[in-house]
Design a protein around this nucleic acid. Sequence first.
DNA 1: CGCAACATTGAACGGTATCAAGTATGGTGG
DNA 2: CCACCATACTTGATACCGTTCAATGTTGCG
Lengths: 255, 255
Amino acid sequence: MVDKDDKLSMSHDRSALLSKLTKRSGLSPSDEQALLAGASTPRHTARGDRLIQEGCETTSLIILCDGMARAARTLADGSQQIVAIFVAGDTLNAGELMFPRSRMSISALTPTVCLPIPLARLDRLVANRPAIARALWLETAAQAAIQQEWMVWLGRRNAQARLAHFLCEVCYRLQIGAEDPGEAFDLPLTQHELADILGLSTVHVNRVLQFLRSQKLIELSRNRLTIQDKSGLREIAEFDAQYLRGLRPPDAGAC
Amino acid sequence: MVDKDDKLSMSHDRSALLSKLTKRSGLSPSDEQALLAGASTPRHTARGDRLIQEGCETTSLIILCDGMARAARTLADGSQQIVAIFVAGDTLNAGELMFPRSRMSISALTPTVCLPIPLARLDRLVANRPAIARALWLETAAQAAIQQEWMVWLGRRNAQARLAHFLCEVCYRLQIGAEDPGEAFDLPLTQHELADILGLSTVHVNRVLQFLRSQKLIELSRNRLTIQDKSGLREIAEFDAQYLRGLRPPDAGAC
DNA sequence: CGCAACATTGAACGGTATCAAGTATGGTGG
DNA sequence: CCACCATACTTGATACCGTTCAATGTTGCG
């Protein structure tokens, strides 16, 4: 029962699964091992698969080891608002752990690899290892910081600024973990999904995209985004990456 | 220097300051005492006073023991978006603690009593007392849950639904801590501030308020809000209080 | 090939912003 | 106690940003 017929040939080597999360939150190798030891079998999904279902009971912490995902809330009239985008290394539901059932649906935007850690084991880890508790708190806080930024542009900025800001943010977050600092990357979102993120109609997203293209700020086709003029894009977005970096290390003498 | 001319006559009795927070997060008396012991002198402010300044270094956790406060982000054009409302018992910056400097300004909506806990001492508490770490994480998660709800109505609902939902939320949160379950309470917000919360113009807030009044759903004058038809209001708000209650208790066997 | 999802375009409508008054309301100093 | 002022609230007219509806083009895939 070590590695049966998993999709990733190296999937029986679980040691690399948490590298991105570990790096970001400054977990020690020992804590990383403990997390891995508590985890269940990694799960591989295709694009579109449900990772977490709205209203379902929360049974595990789920770490997104590879791929991208989106969290959405659905309204009575059928429209939906995407409230978060996750990239490799993010936890999908650190904040949700505090609630008995999930308040949003999370689905895969690409093929993904997820690592679930059952609550019972996680609770023990959290109680015994302050660094893990802190890492989960940090994930929740990072999530909240991003959400605040989204609230600002949802409430106060026009369609161009919203789209530009979102593109800047995703670009930045994807480049944190990646080695390749190129200006082109995969953006596995349809215009319809972009609309659900930005609180706009699909039609208007299309027009705004064309405006950004006409200004030679971006290129986007076939889910491949190239940022041609990063500073120009950041200007109309009023993008300031402060909220994505600069997390405070724990006080040295505390432990 | 025990209680000089403090506004609250019982201010030298610090033991009650944390009661609301404690109750919500299920802290033990021992943890509560430890928190109190780590705290500095309580601070009393008037309406309008800055509690936290955007861009300032984060030096303390600040607990709002009494009163209400708002957190706002200001944009280049001078407009602002209020991203959070705090009521008695909330922590103002649990999530911000992870960042070296604050990303938002928080100011008092009423006279308030705040209890600051310097970071150095807090770090020690967090490292040694899992329940306190957990409580701060929970506060961050609760904040994030509320923000997600705000994102949904900012992105996808019209002005009436936004206002209605916000009123439902505030009403609910204020009644959690209060004994008096009446339908009338103080809402220390000007229409301008409401507009900054809802992402609307002041003028439009006024019109929507009048619409809600004309439907006999609410009464609002002189910062005093009465909800005349709670179920009617909740209906147009699509309000579901799930996200405000039902926080998961820590696993019993974990400690 | 043919279907389904996605992208693009145009025209008309509507919700909300903006501008510009005017009207309470409350606080202050004389 | 009143005159005055600042702030908050109210109201109407007009403009614009984004939505909606409808149609057409494009891409990918079984």
